[in-house]
Design a binder for these strands. Structure first.
Lengths: 219, 219
DNA sequence: AGAAAATTTGAACATAAAGTCAAAACGTTT
DNA sequence: AAACGTTTTGACTTTATGTTCAAATTTTCT
């Protein structure tokens, strides 16, 4: 049954995420992926055409998760600020917890043009979604923002960089990171006098390992 | 004379920056570097021990530029907000204009441990410098920031991501990017009622190529 | 159980990029 | 111009990793 094969495919993609999460680094080998799954690398070619095909599908998973966050934000949030906050929190949690954040570090150059276009168009949906929320907030008087596009870059870039410093056993949980970072970026947009939530929610969550060494933070 | 050799070394490092700027991508080959300089790759080994050694020195150039910005900010700025603004603007301009930003995308894993430690300690200086400025701002009542470390990550991460989307012939100049982004991040820190400069400075600079296609922005 | 289909293996192959080095070319000094 | 040090070359070796595939194994179907 094709279902079984599909399921195995997902397992493979997830193992890429695991390799990127744990063993680190942008030079991800077919061998590492196979090891993670306890299979031989030759077997991977039964499921995917080649390495670029695997990476492409990882990229797609990654955006799907983020686009889900975007659509949920639209449903659940009431004001633009609330929507953006929900989007950012879920986007960040997705990147950290579902593990496809690491894939963002690899580059798209070698991915087949047709695939790349497809991925890029999805990624642009997210980018445009963020900008739209910002614009709506500005129109509603909730936000102030001299350059929406640049603000989008500033926010999404900072989020994309998270996998570089995040460590599963590090001092922060994904819940803490997503909350803190989303709040910070929102503050950068809010117009004077528009704190959109009570101050007590802004409290700093306790660190899990407050005394962890700070060095070697990035990869 | 050793001076001549040193000069050639710098040229090599600069060509790495050029390759990363133009030809793009994290898989940077010795051959590409040699081509950029019009020399054979064998010759590179007369100047550097191996590829990792070249990358290490690029990383060092990169932080040196940023640390210079940090120290200049301390001298030129008056309030913490002003200092941070100067730091961010110069840090960003350095990354874009001096061209070593692309090196941030490569990973440190294969760099010799001793070298890596050295680099990481420099990079930490920058990170701590940013945090120190934020803390000072909070103490001075100029900033509000529930989690300094996270704010530092949010800011520096967004900046590190710039080389992913910046294009020399793209719609923004480094002056525009640095100004806009620095302002955005500062807004995320400023306490209510502490606009630290007049509103007119916040105007959006004109785009050079306002109608450029938006797709394929990242690498 | 036996046939057919699906999955997995492992060894062989292909390729690309890093790194080596003896010899050639070049520049400088006396 | 001969001797010496410096720089450059280019062909060669090595290494790491992606890819192929016929055969072996396992699973599913009747």
């Amino acid at each position: 049954m094709a279902d079984v094969k599909d399921h195995r495919r997902e397992a493979i993609l997830q193992s890429v995420a695991n390799v990127l999460r744990n063993s680190r680094l942008s030079s991800l080998t077919i061998q590492q992926i196979a090891d993670e799954l306890g299979m031989t690398k030759g077997n991977l070619y039964y499921y995917f055409k080649d390495k670029q095909d695997i990476l492409f599908h990882c990229h797609m998973r990654s955006t799907e998760i983020s686009l889900r966050a975007l659509s949920e934000a639209g449903t659940l949030g009431r004001t633009p600020a609330e929507k953006l906050h929900i989007l950012l929190v879920r986007h960040i949690r997705g990147i950290i917890d579902e593990g496809f954040g690491g894939i963002l570090q690899t580059d798209l150059e070698k991915i087949r043009p047709a695939h790349r276009k497809l991925y890029v168009s999805k990624r642009d949906e997210l980018e445009h979604g963020v900008r739209r929320l910002i614009e709506n907030g500005v129109r509603a008087g909730e936000f102030e923002c001299p350059d929406v596009k640049m603000a989008g870059f500033a926010i999404l870039g900072g989020i994309n960089w998270i996998p570089k410093w995040y460590r599963p056993n590090g001092p922060f949980t994904s819940a803490q990171i997503s909350e803190q970072m989303a709040n910070f970026y929102l503050r950068g947009l809010l117009a004077a006098g528009h704190a959109w939530r009570s101050d007590k929610d802004d409290e700093k969550p306790k660190s899990r390992h407050p005394d962890l060494a700070e060095t070697e933070t990035w990869r």
